[in-house]
Design a protein around this nucleic acid. Structure first.
Lengths: 232, 232
DNA sequence: GCTTCTGTTATGTCCTACAAAAGGAATTAT
DNA sequence: ATAATTCCTTTTGTAGGACATAACAGAAGC
């Protein structure tokens, strides 16, 4: 494993824009700006850093993409609360990611799925259960193949929502395409994928009567085919 | 909850750089470039898009920051495999994030910690156990306060490493500062934080003799103070 | 006092120019 | 003829200037 890459940081960002970006980030932190504060203007930054306005704009453009700053004409730029997952969204494309990363993310989603139990039992409401039952009822109605993925999303999506954790929910949703991508690939290579013995219906039943440990065991069984695949 | 923001996407990115960035991303995907492929030169892109080279450079600068492209003089630009967590790293600063997001991340880390069990039991080796025992042994030697955080990092860090999932490990490490930040805040407000009844030493013992469910139960007990805090 | 108009100002975009690096081609030496 | 060296070309990186545009501020008019 490449620990070096984590411990040592590549000194001297080659390009000016990189350096300015880093400087700006450091500047924001040091001055302990709070969201809403106004930043110096582009030209002032350029002068202070001794670079052209062009370079400053490249760096600002990056921060703007990450949602760290918001700029409006005349008013100048203001610091904003970044959307931490927004940047991930841009990069999380199954077609671009390497094989190892894809595998890592596949596993990561399994981990997240297994971790659902505690938060769900902390916050589930009777209405949630009803909603889940509705979703499950729709599943059995049309058991055709092409709809399976939709039902997976609906059911598991509802589970994430029940955690009341928005970041968690969005994160899971983002990971889904990668998950499916890997799944499709595996199926294509190793033949049809088995489905776990514990169904969505079973999981809802557990939610109604069992405790969080029961639920986790149920989820483990539900995901068993995926875990088995990891062993191979 | 703001579902709109997830379902509907803000049409027409206001600035040209935003549009070009989006177009470039779409272009890369449509042409199904693979890492190593060369991209058109800046001027060609500018001409094709009907914008100035400056705007193109801003967009490219963003992709470069995300690690999606790598540019070398003369050679042009080549597509690379992005470092998905690199972008997260830039934004994940406790001082900038909002209160809700901080809370979400705190919970997310608990979830990830609870999900450790399955991967660990899939891949743990006798050497790993030995390493853990060494770490635990060093803990009892100096039980002073200031070192507690270091030991937390050492112990849990080793656990992540045992999963063999690099992305998972890095992700956890990135979440750590936020976790500590929230923890410090809570302690400051609500007084001293309790420590779980199950210690690191106990967890190692479980790893040696118990199964993954035992370990998860142990971890739950280890983290119990944190989970209790969520209820309040 | 309220609306409207105008001017100022900072960002957004374009253009041109040039330095530097990195291939490629041409040239020279063995 | 092949290998090494030098020169040239090309493409990115950076600089600086120019102007459009939007948004705010203050003045003018009702």
């Amino acid at each position: 494993m490449n620990d070096l890459k984590n411990d040592i940081q590549p000194l001297g960002a080659s390009t000016m824009a990189d350096m300015v970006e880093s400087r700006l980030r450091e500047y924001l932190k040091r001055k302990s700006f709070v969201p809403g504060d106004a930043l110096p203007k582009e030209q002032e930054l350029a002068d202070a850093l001794g670079v052209s306005r062009n370079v400053v704009r490249e760096a600002l453009s990056r921060l703007r993409m990450l949602g760290m700053i918001d700029t409006r004409k005349k008013r100048g730029m203001v610091l904003t609360q970044p959307d931490i997952l927004g940047s991930l969204e841009r990069v999380l494309d199954p077609l671009i990611l390497g094989k190892n990363t894809l595998k890592d993310i596949f596993e990561l989603r399994l981990v997240l799925e297994m971790g659902l139990a505690d938060l769900i039992y902390l916050r589930k409401t009777p209405e949630d259960i009803t909603a889940l039952e509705t979703i499950v009822a729709q599943e059995v109605n049309k058991q055709q193949k092409p709809f399976r993925v939709e039902h997976e999303i609906a059911f598991h999506g509802k589970l994430y929502q029940m955690t009341g954790n928005d970041t968690y929910m969005r994160f899971q949703k983002m990971l889904l395409p990668v998950f499916e991508y890997v799944l499709d690939y595996e199926i294509q290579v190793n033949g049809q994928a088995d489905v776990g013995k514990v169904t969505h219906h079973d999981l809802v039943e557990i939610l109604k009567t069992g405790d969080s440990e029961d639920f986790r065991r149920g989820m483990k069984a539900h995901l068993k085919p995926h875990f088995d695949r990891l062993k191979a």
